[in-house]
Design a protein around this nucleic acid. Structure first.
Lengths: 233, 233
DNA sequence: CGGGTTCTTGATCGGTATCAACGGCCGTGG
DNA sequence: CCACGGCCGTTGATACCGATCAAGAACCCG
């Protein structure tokens, strides 16, 4: 039981749950369903309504399933993230583990009912959603108005911010997702992603090693290539 | 002063503000800045931070300004909507009136500080944000994975839902936005939008009259063309 | 070391952008 | 009320980026 209570512990911290003994916290922890997802396996939610997820450990992709074999990855998430899985509307959504994952699953409506009286939790959720909305809007700009080369730069810079480790002037990335995932996230094909990586490699902007390791040698070049507003850090 | 207090009245109703005499409501109403926007004019926010907008009357577009002349319209909003304008990050954002507009403008951070103690308001905001996030995610799918013809169908169906008036089996739309706006919202060019309208006209799926009036004659055809998940209403 | 998956590279195709010109709607001023 | 003029929308011709089709190479696992 030790590991499981740790799971709740970190979650409680992340949503600013009140002191450990509060009855509200008790009830919310009972509501959460701990789930283990093996790498590559995905959480099919059927029509269970919107869910709130706390990702205790690992990384996941949130996939919108459009018709046929056309999937769009809405977002990647990493250890410690809290996020919403929407109920299926015009598309169906699922969460898929990129590696082994531990997560806590709450039915969104019940969670909100319980949290209704606790401004701290609500405020925390608003913060999470503001963030998710900001990211989704930036993604919309990238998908609507950017070329393949710009999208790749945006992707690499975004990953650098979230899971990169600085190494002098360079940033080292150990990407948990495949080229296919990158393509499905950027609205491109796997071949185009591969070609863009090759171009960046030839320009010495990045180095790669194996399938997952990427070293960003020239961040300023990537920023220029990302097509961001001039003068942005 | 009568019209202005009506403005606050409808806003208070929309965010579930407490009884009229509450001091919190008083303070929040003092925080809101009423703004009139003439059609075509836009609200430049400089670096004023994130804003919360209540659209009392009219319709607006929320525009992300990427480099050069490449704008992406993030969302359209209509009378009664409450929404966030993000602080500029990698892009700068502005709100532009499609026709004459009345709106209430709040600095998001101050608003949240004030609302911190009122679970009803917070809960209302979460509802607004869930909605915005759902729409933004659907837009991401459209921009990432859909053809021009699918995007147009998605757009028309979305507008039908929000501002359409039923007329027998058909739906009548009086679009407040130009072809250019539609194009910038869908990640297409104005020419492509025009061509798609022509195709739909030739197929009798829609009729148009003047620049703004569109009649959707065949909703089921549009749904089929939108590339939604099979079996969705 | 072998087999399957993932990634890379090459050749071709197609959809949408781009460039260019025309036509029609609508507000303005006579 | 009508005439004018500008903007918005439509249509056509061409170009280009990225998708698709196809094959080979590298990586990772057993």
């Amino acid at each position: 039981m030790a590991t499981q209570s740790n799971t709740f512990e970190t979650f409680a911290h992340s949503v600013k749950l009140a002191e450990p003994t509060s009855p509200l916290r008790q009830r919310i922890c009972e509501l959460g369903r701990p789930v283990h997802l093996a790498g590559g396996s995905s959480l099919e939610l059927e029509d269970a309504g919107a869910q709130l997820v706390y990702l205790t450990r690992g990384s996941t992709k949130l996939v919108a399933h459009a018709s046929e074999a056309r999937d769009q990855i809405i977002a990647f998430h990493f250890t410690g993230d809290t996020y919403w899985i929407p109920a299926s509307d015009n598309y169906s959504y699922s969460v898929c583990a990129l590696g082994d994952c531990e997560l806590l699953l709450f039915p969104a409506d019940t969670f909100l009912e319980m949290a209704e009286t606790d401004p701290h939790i609500l405020r925390g959720l608003i913060g999470q959603m503001t963030d998710a909305l900001r990211r989704c809007r930036e993604k919309a700009v990238a998908l609507g108005r950017k070329t393949a080369s710009e999208r790749i730069a945006v992707f690499l810079l975004g990953m650098a911010e979230r899971i990169g480790t600085a190494k002098g002037n360079a940033v080292v990335l150990d990407l948990p997702m495949s080229r296919r995932d990158i393509a499905e996230s950027l609205g491109l094909t796997i071949e185009t992603v591969s070609r863009q990586f090759t171009i960046l490699r030839d320009a010495k902007t990045i180095q790669t090693s194996g399938r997952s390791l990427v070293i960003l040698n020239d961040l300023s070049q990537l920023r220029a290539q990302a097509g961001y507003l001039a003068g942005t850090a």
